[in-house]
Amino acid sequence: MSAINAFLEGIVDYAGLFPPARLDLPTALGNYDYYQRHPRASMLARFVLPLDLLLTAQPLPARVSLVCRGDGVQLPELPPQVEALEVAGSLATPTGLPVFHEIDWRGSLTTRFPTAGGVKLRTGGLTPDTIPPADAVENFLLEAARRALPIKFTAGLHAPVPNDDPQVGARLHGFLNLFAAAFAAYSGETDLAGFIAGAGWADFQFTATHFHAGPFSFTLDEIVTLRRKFVISFGSCSFLEPIEHLERHGFLQFE
């Protein structure tokens, strides 16, 4: 396995039901089914599904990440396709599934992090105020790494590097930047904000055995370990856009 294939393995949780795509359920389910046969299907992870649609999502995708919002959410008996939970609020009872607690990046993070499970950072939205500044992302990554908690990102990461979005009216984060910064945080680095905000296409290179990202470099073994244990995935309402950007800039061969 090459470094880029290890890096991209199961990196995208498909969130076609969510903004800005906001697809209807049949269309999103159909897309997910199609993407499982895509030449880059190895990049596809779970289907992101709100709890209130669990019973109407038929057929239920083989891999589901269930989104739960509210305090004291009572879960029904969950089918085996549900592999993980993304919680904005709290659950009424513990669960044996992996749980990613959504963390509000505004203000102090130390009192908001759970003692167990994983954490999730919302990295974008439809308005400029929903996009965390680079120092807030840095703080999130350092706190997660200090506690050795697995993380995932969601929202605003269709492009691999930072980019200006005229519809949002702001500069969006890039998933190459965030994943590389997360790798660095879990490797003991602490000065990340400048890289998160400023690294561009020229700062990234994949070889057969390494991922070079600005001042940071990671071996194939490190990539595999970090992705599997700590830096899990990012949710995107588009599976194809990240692939198209990588292809356009020569990071993937055109299929």
Rank of each mutant, 00 (worst) to 15 (best):
T110M: 13
H101N: 11
L178R: 04
L109I: 06
A159G: 08
W105R: 08
S108V: 11
V119R: 04
R147P: 02
G96H: 08
D135A: 15
T115L: 14
P114I: 08
T130W: 01
S90M: 06
R171S: 06
A155Q: 03
E83A: 13
G156R: 03
N177G: 02
Q167P: 03
F113T: 05
L75H: 10
L157T: 01
P94D: 14
G174K: 05
T110W: 00
I196K: 07
A193N: 13
A193R: 09
D104T: 07
F140K: 15
W105D: 04
F175D: 00
V161M: 06
V168H: 06
A116D: 13
G118L: 12
S108G: 14
T154R: 07
P94H: 11
F140I: 13
V87P: 00
F195L: 10
A185Y: 00
G124N: 14
I131M: 11
G125K: 09
A144E: 01
W201A: 06
H101V: 01
W201F: 09
L78W: 05
E143H: 13
N177W: 00
P132Q: 15
L75K: 12
L91V: 10
A184T: 01
A148P: 01
N139C: 11
T123G: 06
S90P: 07
L142A: 11
E138W: 05
G188T: 04
G89H: 03
P150W: 02
G194M: 00
P166D: 09
G107Y: 02
V137Q: 04
A181Q: 01
Q167F: 07
L75A: 11
G125N: 12
L149D: 05
T154I: 05
S108N: 14
A182W: 02
L141Q: 01
D164C: 08
A84C: 08
P80F: 13
S187L: 14
L78H: 08
V82S: 12
A148W: 03
A185P: 07
A159I: 06
T190F: 00
T154N: 04
P150D: 02
T115W: 05
A144N: 04
E102M: 15
R112H: 10
L75R: 12
Q81W: 03
A184Q: 02
K152S: 01
A116F: 02
P114K: 12
L126V: 14
K152H: 03
P128G: 09
V161I: 14
G188P: 08
F113C: 15
L142D: 06
G200C: 06
P114N: 09
L149C: 10
A92R: 13
A180I: 01
G198C: 12
H173D: 07
F113S: 14
T95Y: 02
H101E: 10
D191V: 14
G96F: 05
L109R: 07
R122A: 13
A134M: 00
I151W: 00
R146I: 03
G156A: 07
A197T: 02
E102I: 15
I131D: 01
